[in-house]
């Protein structure tokens, strides 16, 4: 009997997961269709870009600046110990940040700040029947609410990633100069950056930008009950978006490595 219940629960969870994936795909398609239909309030895209981009830029710049300093300090110490040659520190740091750390850390921070905000906003609208009122007025919530957030997240994820690269690289260069006495012209060398690095970093940023609003919007639309339901939706959005970012990172890095040899030269 106990085994029977466990199998039933497992089957239920599996079916639930499949339904969630189907619903996420539907929201993603709906967001794209919503951008074509433009059935959202006037100026909403600009407002969402401000919320996602402008309000995150300080948070991301400071965090990435510190991350750049710590990374240069740690890797510089190790390079000093092993080879004593710091000439490749800056160029390799830049490649690593462009294709990996800048888009991924930026997306993880967006998942916590923006993802939580989207889920809380839409979740509150769901539990207070505002979503029902929208549907009654002939509006599809995906077009009206998620599409502008989707567009803003995709664009701003890329823009913030560029900011993240600039701030982390600058802070790293300053650290290399002040801690290791490394000549800035040696550190600030972008000659090793390849099209592959830019493409992979850009693809990651854009894909993360699509995943975060769709997952967070889905969690918001699934909110039930009252404030507790909104809290649960917010937590699920942060966990789901963060997990999706790491999964996408793994998949895209794997594809890059398998088909393009990781851009090594």
């Amino acid at each position: 009997m106990n085994l029977h219940r466990k199998i039933e629960a497992l089957g239920g969870a599996f079916i639930g997961a499949l339904k969630s994936v189907r619903e996420l795909a539907r929201l993603w398609r709906g967001s794209l269709a919503g951008l074509v239909e433009r059935d959202y309030p006037k100026g909403e895209i600009a407002r969402q870009m401000y919320v996602v981009g402008n309000k995150s830029v300080l948070f991301i710049s400071v965090t990435m600046g510190f991350l750049g300093m710590v990374m240069v300090m740690q890797s510089g110490q190790q390079l000093n110990r092993i080879t004593g040659d710091l000439s490749q520190l800056g160029p390799e740091f830049l490649r690593l940040f462009i294709q990996e750390f800048a888009p991924t850390i930026t997306a993880l921070m967006l998942a916590t700040r923006v993802g939580a905000g989207i889920a809380a906003e839409i979740g509150t609208m769901k539990v207070t029947e505002q979503i029902d009122a929208l549907r009654l007025s002939g509006i599809t919530p995906t077009s009206y609410l998620i599409a502008p957030r989707f567009f803003a997240c995709v664009v701003m994820s890329l823009v913030l990633t560029i900011f993240a690269v600039v701030f982390s690289f600058s802070a790293g260069g300053l650290t290399a100069w002040s801690v290791f006495g490394l000549n800035p012209t040696l550190f600030f060398d972008a000659s090793r950056v390849q099209v592959y690095d830019l493409t992979l970093g850009g693809c990651k940023a854009l894909t993360y930008g699509m995943a975060i609003p769709v997952i967070s919007g889905y969690c918001g639309l699934e909110a039930r009950g009252g404030s507790e339901g909104v809290g649960t939706a917010t937590t699920s959005a942060v966990i789901g978006s963060s997990f999706a970012v790491l999964l996408i990172d793994f998949l895209l890095s794997g594809i890059g490595f398998a088909f393009f040899g990781g851009g090594a030269r």
Partner: peptide, 15 residues
């Protein structure tokens, strides 16, 4: 729905 108006239990005013 174009011909239906509804007052929701929790008002459902767009905040």
């Amino acid at each position: 729905r174009r011909d239906i108006g509804m007052l929701f239990q929790n008002y459902a005013l767009f905040d």
